[in-house]
Write a protein that binds this DNA or RNA. Sequence first.
DNA 1: ATCTGACCTTGACGAAGATCAAAACATACC
DNA 2: GGTATGTTTTGATCTTCGTCAAGGTCAGAT
Lengths: 247, 247
Amino acid sequence: MNDIAAAALPHEDVKKRCSTCSLRHLCLPLGLDQDDIKRLDEVITQRRKVSAGQHLFRVGDAFRSLAAVRAGFFKVYELGADGREQVTGFQTEGELLGLDAISGGVHRGNALALVDAEVCVIPFDRFEDLLTGLPGLQRRFHAILSASIVTSQTLMMMLGTMRAEHRLAAFLLDLSTRLGARGRSPTLLQLPMSREDIGNYLGLKLETVSRVFSQFRREGLVAVAGRAIEILDIDRLRALVSGVLRR
Amino acid sequence: MNDIAAAALPHEDVKKRCSTCSLRHLCLPLGLDQDDIKRLDEVITQRRKVSAGQHLFRVGDAFRSLAAVRAGFFKVYELGADGREQVTGFQTEGELLGLDAISGGVHRGNALALVDAEVCVIPFDRFEDLLTGLPGLQRRFHAILSASIVTSQTLMMMLGTMRAEHRLAAFLLDLSTRLGARGRSPTLLQLPMSREDIGNYLGLKLETVSRVFSQFRREGLVAVAGRAIEILDIDRLRALVSGVLRR
DNA sequence: ATCTGACCTTGACGAAGATCAAAACATACC
DNA sequence: GGTATGTTTTGATCTTCGTCAAGGTCAGAT
């Protein structure tokens, strides 16, 4: 292979650019102009595949890069002093992993691929350097960090004030919205996580999650077939979350 | 008054600079060199007093500035669709308010002064401009945002997995640490918030908070006199949180 | 085809914490 | 001082969810 051939971008690489990525309206590049995205392309050059059941990172791993989910689904969870597990989030396409490790330089959670997944690697040092020259990207990054705080607070609200049925309803609606924004069906959900993972995320036991699913099924809110969930009455689910329906 | 006199900084203003602020080792300036802090001083020029019982901002207020708590104590809380309240945090000296409003441009929570308080106003546009020229400050700001995510996740863990006594113990220890870092007694706590606020923060009812306080008192962990709390056995409190003491 | 293991559902029971109620206590205001 | 008002403590009871246990379903391995 001669130099010119080596310099030419193989087909693979073209697809790996933010500029042409199908997720660019959801991910980091949202709202940036073409020039800024080109600069991003120079920094985000690496992709990494993570098979289902594999960890992308674990607690204590040194933090060098953020990861943007390109495909698949991750769960991020922490282990308490005595082994209690708390799932802090489920991340999918266009969402960032590792934000909590920026302070401290060490990963605080474990990121496990629930299905075969792929992430774009964002070397953080180079990324921070890039930010100083690109005010648009800086604003976008701060917005992402801030949105991540908002997400946590919403979950805190759920854990602190809601009953089991409200939590599960809110969970399904959130998932529905996020999948819808990614061009998937907002009513036909193929859950990548187990009842136990859901319960852990919502502060419930898996039996309770299962019971509430059954209750929703009896009430005609959803159809349940294992991890395949169909939302049948989204308005009533919404009413449940906003507390209009007390029972 | 002549020009020179006008240009000279009145005594008041000298005290209002980050460079000389007694909280600079806790607040935004942490880890910055003198030159960077001087640049901060140019942007953070305004202070605002907030009396006990007053709001610094409310849900829906336009977001223009972050606020750094200079003195006093705030509670930040959100109201759910049906009026459920969830306290998302208690902020004191050196801590920032309004981070969750960066994305969205609108405040997500209500910030209420629990005692007479004062904040330094950080106009966000000018602050973001400043960041692009000061990599050190940028790193510090990202660390603060990231740390805020970590704090939320810690609380999520508490709400999701811990029992009432563990939550209250963790709350007291957190407060003790933060007050200690601010040169106050880490064992003699004067709580600025009501039992209801504490309960709301921890996902408990005020009666439960009161009962757990009484239980701790009977067990010799703390002395309780209304809102004045003395931690008597910090080691046992710590053991409780880390799950060593199951009962 | 059947065995195996992981995951899900359902039931019975118990415990933690919420709710309801009343009294004690503190604080500010006449 | 005495009264009104808000906060905290404590008790009795009820609800929700967790725990324990058994059985069912499904996919992949043998």
